[in-house]
Amino acid sequence: MSFHEVRFPAQLSFGSSGGPERRTEIVTLASGHEQRNSPWAHGRRRYDAGTGVRSLDDLELVTGFFEARMGQLYGFRWKDWVDFRSGSRDRVPEATDQVIATGDGTTRAFQLVKTYASGPASYVRPIVKPVDLTVRAAIDGVELFDDFSVDLTTGIVTFDDPPQDGAAVSAGYEFDVPVRFDTDFIETNIAAFEAGEIPSIPVIEVRV
């Protein structure tokens, strides 16, 4: 897939709108009861980059970024200011934030994940775009420093030695969302912009 490992200007995504999307198929039976099913194993996020644009300088920056991505052709990184850390948004990541796997004595490589839990339900989200120099890892609660590596393009953590059988493998990190523009056209009107009208610049998450 065509993807550029470059982040959309974070100062502009800070003011954007958007969030996670799910797809649910609902069938209403003759009795009035419903059958609900989701064809998606994972949610998909949508954003509007236009709502983060506050000046003509911002608009110029977005236009340059859009042209460099050739519209929808190339994906890029996006910082979701609501959800960009393994733990709480306002806390620096710790190596024990997320249990990502259980060691088996053989496997050395593990996918970063983030678990969202509420009541008896939970959802495990693969994290594929960790941020450089933010990933921390631990085995059975003991943080490691020079004994692992991270692929920043896939979110795979590889340990020098396989964690022992039954050991809890955990990690903490910051991450971006892989996205692309969901349009090949940005309509700008300087007069309208100065009057308070902001162009809509849709962005959508992509599977990588």
Rank of each mutant, 00 (worst) to 15 (best):
I100N: 07
G196A: 12
R54S: 11
V142R: 13
P93F: 12
L144T: 02
R136G: 08
S118P: 09
G103C: 08
V128T: 13
R89F: 04
R69W: 01
R45E: 05
A168P: 01
F193W: 00
A192F: 06
E187F: 15
G15N: 00
E187M: 14
F175D: 02
G43F: 13
E174M: 13
Y116R: 15
R125V: 14
R23S: 07
L12I: 09
F181W: 09
I186K: 05
A171N: 10
Q35C: 08
E187I: 15
D176P: 06
D83H: 14
I204G: 13
G103N: 06
A101L: 04
V124A: 08
V124S: 08
L29P: 03
A195W: 00
P9I: 06
V82R: 09
P20M: 06
F193Q: 00
P178T: 06
V99T: 11
V113C: 07
P163M: 09
L29N: 14
V6A: 00
R22P: 01
F65S: 03
F175M: 07
G103T: 06
V131I: 14
Q164N: 10
S38N: 09
E94A: 13
R7F: 04
V206D: 01
F145R: 12
R36Q: 09
L12Y: 03
F65V: 00
I186L: 07
V82P: 00
R85M: 07
A30Y: 05
I156T: 10
V135I: 10
R46K: 15
D57K: 15
A191S: 07
